[in-house]
């Protein structure tokens, strides 16, 4: 009986805190995205051929973990099959956060745009069942810096 109570408490905690954190994170993502919109991130390999651009590799990464509630939901989904909606928003947040961090880094070095943006997603400690179900997203690309100003 007690493990059932512990389970329900964890579930409620995971749900409450997880939902709150997700809402807050989305707010911050949207706010930063609109601010960094003027710095385009382009997934094209060939940059504009203009000799006055300096290049630098920029990257942003984030490791996120899924909360207890979402993990339980995903495990349930595993029984029935279908769309695992609890992980959709997690990965969406992670990808956008990684890209934002990359853009922030590019902004800090005065880049005009970032080219050839690539994503890399890796699940950390997968295979280890009861442990942390977490995923790393890395976004990287080449920042083009207008060197005429200097």
């Amino acid at each position: 009986m007690y493990d059932l109570i512990v389970f329900l408490v964890l579930l409620a905690l995971g749900y409450g805190v997880g939902q709150y954190a997700e809402k807050r994170h989305y707010r911050s993502i949207i706010e930063r995205e609109s601010r960094l919109n003027r710095l385009p991130a382009i997934a094209v390999r060939s940059p504009p051929v203009q000799p006055y651009y300096d290049q630098a590799l920029v990257s942003g990464n984030v490791v996120v973990s899924v909360d207890y509630f979402k993990r339980f939901l995903a495990a349930l989904r595993n029984l029935f099959g279908g769309r695992v909606i609890s992980y959709e928003s997690l990965l969406d947040r992670a990808r956008r956060e990684a890209l934002l961090r990359m853009k922030e880094q590019a902004e800090a070095i005065g880049a005009a745009m970032v080219f050839n943006v690539k994503y890399e997603t890796a699940s950390i400690s997968k295979g280890a069942r009861q442990t942390i179900g977490s995923v790393e997203v890395l976004a990287y690309g080449t920042a083009l810096i207008d060197s005429r100003g200097q």
């Binding site: 949207i30 995205e33 919109n37 385009p40 504009p48 939901l73 349930l76 609890s86 959709e88 745009m113």
Partner: peptide, 25 residues
Amino acid sequence: YSNPQIPEGINTTDRHPLREFLLLA
């Protein structure tokens, strides 16, 4: 080159997690 704002909710499903939970559980 520009990054126009993309509308929200295309890559996620807008279904209340509690509803999903009650249904599945």
